[in-house]
Amino acid sequence: MMHALAQKFSTLLIAFRRIFASPVAGILNILVIGIALSLPTGMYLLLQNAQGLVAQISGAPQISLFLAMDTTQEEAGKLRKQLGQHNRIANAEFISRGLALEKLKESTGLEDVIAGLGNNPLPDAYIITPKQTDAKSLEDLRNELQRLPAVEHAQLDSAWAYKMEALLEFARIAVLILASLLSLGLIAITFNTIRLQILTQDDEIQVSGLIGATDAFIRRPFLYFGAMQGLIGGIAAWLIIAISLLFLKAPLATLSQLYASNFTLHPLSMADSFSLLLFSVYLGWLGAWLSVGRHLSRMAH
């Protein structure tokens, strides 16, 4: 058992040495694999960050009801009762025009501008949290609330979030397509590298077969090579992403400050990094397996 492991380990070492036997070709291969993997992974990372941002900003979908400026106490009371009893509303929070002004001052930092306005331009408002949150019922509820007498304007706050969500979905599929294509490319790269290697080691393969080597024995060093090349390519991809994030950090911080937000780019999580490496190892292994398999079946005929 120990001995079998030792033998596999020495095969692994041979595979490692072969990658850098011709350093330029080896490094170029790894670079190509690294770039091919870092493109979809990087885009995936940006998407994830965008999604996080959307979720953070939009939260649960809400409807803002802005009351007419000339609403009487009586009308307001009646509206409060109506909203409280409505069976499709989970919660209705009243925000007086004074409070709204305070909040505006706090969140935007536009104090000077607001101070310059003189009197408060904001109306009283309700923030409605609906029970059903699908796009259709939200729109229905908004229309219904819009028709209430004291309501000047009913606004669906999360409409843009839904649009954003749809856009992200579109981008997600685009990334998936890109990732699939580049994965195929990665398999092709390994396939070709291994094919060239087989050509240079054809003698060894032939002789080994003639003196009793199993297909598994012949395949092993090439599979290890493919997997190893995939792993190093994966690490290169990870580094490319990490370094790119480093470069993006400063400009993003400036941008985020300008928008008075504390948004930061999250790096690849441990799980995602692990998946990236596992996936690149698998693709390298697969390319090698296909390449040697083709050669062995040709040899058999």
Binding site: D203, E204, Q206, V207, G209, L210, I211, G212, A213, F217
Partner: peptide, 17 residues
């Protein structure tokens, strides 16, 4: 492979590496 392991073959063209 298991048949061939029981045979020693000396090839006409040597097949040395």
């Amino acid at each position: 492979p298991y048949l061939r392991r029981n045979l020693g073959i000396i090839f006409q063209d040597h097949k040395l590496l």
